[in-house]
Write a protein that binds this DNA or RNA. Structure first.
Lengths: 309, 309
DNA sequence: AGATCCATGTAGCTACGCTACAACAGCGAT
DNA sequence: ATCGCTGTTGTAGCGTAGCTACATGGATCT
């Protein structure tokens, strides 16, 4: 019996994403194909691997066992590929990087440019993706590197076998309309103004709330935006104050006043995550990108708005 | 890129056996198929994996690297299969055992019978095979268990990641025609008689030579036989003396006198070998057979010839 | 109940891998 | 050198496995 890698990958995706449809999407095939592969695989395995649960499916115990082993097999295959890549004297191949918008623009894009300049055969692809999604894609192999953020008060634990590579710490800045009287950068001076914050269940909103509560008040959040460019526009329109991380301040519209937080109670740590290859070294291509991401260049200070520089 | 298990297995076999033809035979396909798979695999790998060397081929460095990783992948797949098999409450599946002739008849066959009696769904297959061949087949996965012998003076080192399971120690016996005057079982009494021994380059011949030299003489080897049944027939015909391991003495023809060696200078250790699964437990089916092989029953004393019982 | 979502069957097409045969290259012998 | 044996590689053709597109059948929500 041989347990095709293909089929094991299907099971792995199903285990990871919890549904045939999601796995099919990740694998760029139709749900029908995934379903057929599961049937075939369970025939080979001699056990039912999934069973219907309401509208979806769940893995049977046998399915979970095999999924665990599938992860090992896929890891071994990946190490084989990495071993081959390491034979090339030149850094080459494709690295897929997932990052949230502000990091993608401010950190990953320049790093990718530097990496490509150094290694012409390196193909870096940047995919904007949100936290949970990108973790799944990393573990499934769709992405090779994921850039995540972590707010001080909300540690984001790294499940299972992922490696963490620190990049930088991104301080939050206080953003207000220029029309407002200038403060000292103390949050408590802004207890009675309208606020602009991110959507529910986002770490950024949590960060704002946390900072304001530490300053002794509950912010009056009037507007919500997950896009910092929009947030800045809202501030420019005089609609409220906001806390914005430095990396999102590369293009500040007129009419916005930016100042560092007097009490740097909140900052987000930004770090890259890769699949741990069981002690084996990463692919040279991945290493090259990680070097640029966390290298001395770090945050391109030259790109910061004048008010901060 | 996905590096099909199938292809990796092809490379693994080629690496193990050193030729396309041998690998093809082991995989039960034509050499053409193996050759095509190698071409395809090297295309995927981005490196030449084999190159012609005279009439045959050798692996390139890249080929060796990938072959090593291939072993890991195949090991992971095997562990996955083992994990599935362990889910069955009953011991089932197929176990292929390779053994040299005398052990196969005296040890493996009864053990297989006992195992099958205990576990009706267990399918034990016994394949007679010689030492080097069976080691290759074990490492390639063609065999699951191999029974090997090791003479005291010729330790047989176990390369790489194989597990060793002691079975028994098989003492050598002195075999002479009944027409000869009875000795005390001391080898030195037979320094001037003709001898029957095994072929060149066999451990059994080495054992005989070793024992005789310890007794202070060089045996006058007149006849050669690798088959102990033939050896006994030659002895029965009065052609010479021989040293024969106990396990080969289940069917002693008339006219042969068997006695234990007065000085038990030579004995062969018999042991089973399995692929080490990197710390993971063996398959239940393999475990069941190993239990019977090395269990309390051990050598079936009841089957020994009367002269020894 | 109707609408919707999700998983699973079925028909048909494509593509991959195998066999059989042929060609070619190295090594040894007469 | 020539012939023959052995071993690897190329080519044509066939069988099968896996995919898509579409249809079917449950389960959930409104």
């Amino acid at each position: 019996m041989d347990l095709d890698v293909r089929r094991l990958r299907v099971l792995h995706e199903v285990a990871l994403r919890g549904s045939v449809t999601a796995a099919a999407a990740a694998l760029h095939v139709t749900p029908s194909a995934v379903s057929q592969q599961l049937v075939q695989l369970s025939r080979e395995a001699g056990h039912e691997l999934v069973e219907r649960a309401g509208r979806g499916i769940v893995l049977t115990p046998a399915g979970q066992v095999l999924a665990t082993h599938a992860k090992d097999v896929l890891g071994a295959v990946e190490q084989a590929v990495a071993g081959l890549a390491a034979l090339h004297r030149r850094v080459s191949g494709t690295v897929r990087v997932g990052a949230f918008a502000s990091a993608a623009g401010a950190l990953v894009a320049p790093a990718a440019a530097r990496a490509r300049a150094k290694h012409p055969e390196l193909d870096v692809r940047v995919i904007e993706a949100e936290d949970q999604q990108s973790r799944l894609d990393l573990r499934s192999g769709t992405l090779d590197v994921v850039v995540l953020q972590e707010y001080d008060h909300v540690p984001a634990p790294l499940v299972d076998d992922l490696d963490r590579h620190p990049i930088t710490t991104d301080p939050m800045h206080l953003v207000t309309p220029v029309g407002w009287r200038r403060g000292t950068g103390r949050l408590s001076e802004l207890r009675d103004v309208p606020w602009i914050a991110s959507a529910e269940h986002t770490p950024c909103l949590g960060s704002t709330l946390h900072a304001c509560r530490l300053a002794g008040f509950e912010p009056d959040i009037r507007h919500r935006s997950v896009d910092f460019a929009l947030t800045l526009d809202l501030v420019a329109a005089g609609l409220g104050a906001a806390l914005v991380p430095e990396l999102a301040l590369r293009h500040v519209p007129p009419g916005v006043h930016v100042q560092p937080l007097a009490e740097p109670v909140t900052a987000r740590r930004i770090f890259a995550v890769t699949r741990a290859l069981g002690g084996a070294p990463q692919r040279p291509a991945v290493d090259a990108l990680l070097t640029e991401l966390s290298g001395p260049a770090g945050v391109p200070r030259g790109h910061l708005p004048p008010v901060l520089a």
